[in-house]
């Protein structure tokens, strides 16, 4: 069961809220302080992408963020409801040389860059898509707050 689940209407102003909630739950779950910036950035990228997909496809449904504390693991799933949204991104692009400086970035390029940032930041990431929408799943190791004798 999810530790915390968040649904927000696909508006850019709510992405910050998702970042703050994710970072707070990650901290509680025992994700290392040094990694919290990465969690914040990765969840922000995933949510920005989902918001963009919903808006460009005229979907009114909310974006879904599921934060789960597992044994030795903290995972985040960001789900959109755009069918086949992950198809072009099923292979998460690795670290790239960056976009050509003279190219104007369109939405697709920003989307790609968002995924590039996620894949550069997060070791354990999976992008899937189906008929009901796409999911970006990311996880980080946790350290227990107290060490048992």
């Amino acid at each position: 069961m999810a530790t915390v689940e968040l649904r927000f209407s696909a508006q850019p102003e709510h992405v910050r809220t998702a970042r703050l909630v994710a970072a707070a739950v990650a901290r509680r779950a025992g994700v290392d302080e040094a990694v919290l910036d990465e969690v914040r950035l990765a969840v922000g990228e995933a949510c920005s992408r989902a918001v963009g997909l919903h808006r460009s496809h005229g979907i009114d449904a909310p974006v879904r963020v599921v934060l789960t504390e597992e044994e030795k693991l903290f995972s985040i799933e960001v789900g959109d409801e755009v069918p086949g949204s992950g198809v072009g991104a099923s292979a998460v692009p690795g670290v790239r040389g960056g976009p050509a400086p003279d190219d104007e970035l369109d939405d697709g390029a920003e989307d790609e860059m968002g995924l590039a940032v996620i894949s550069g930041l997060v070791d354990d990431v999976e992008v899937t898509s189906g008929e009901s929408g796409g999911v970006i799943r990311m996880s980080w190791p946790t350290t227990p707050a107290t060490v048992l004798p």
Binding site: R40, L41, G44, P99, E104, L105, E110, G114, A116, V117
Partner: peptide
């Protein structure tokens, strides 16, 4: 305090 890929895109657009 925080910069994401959308911000990077704006900076690249400015450079262009």
């Amino acid at each position: 305090d925080f910069l994401d890929s959308t911000g990077l895109g704006v900076l690249v657009g400015g450079l262009k």
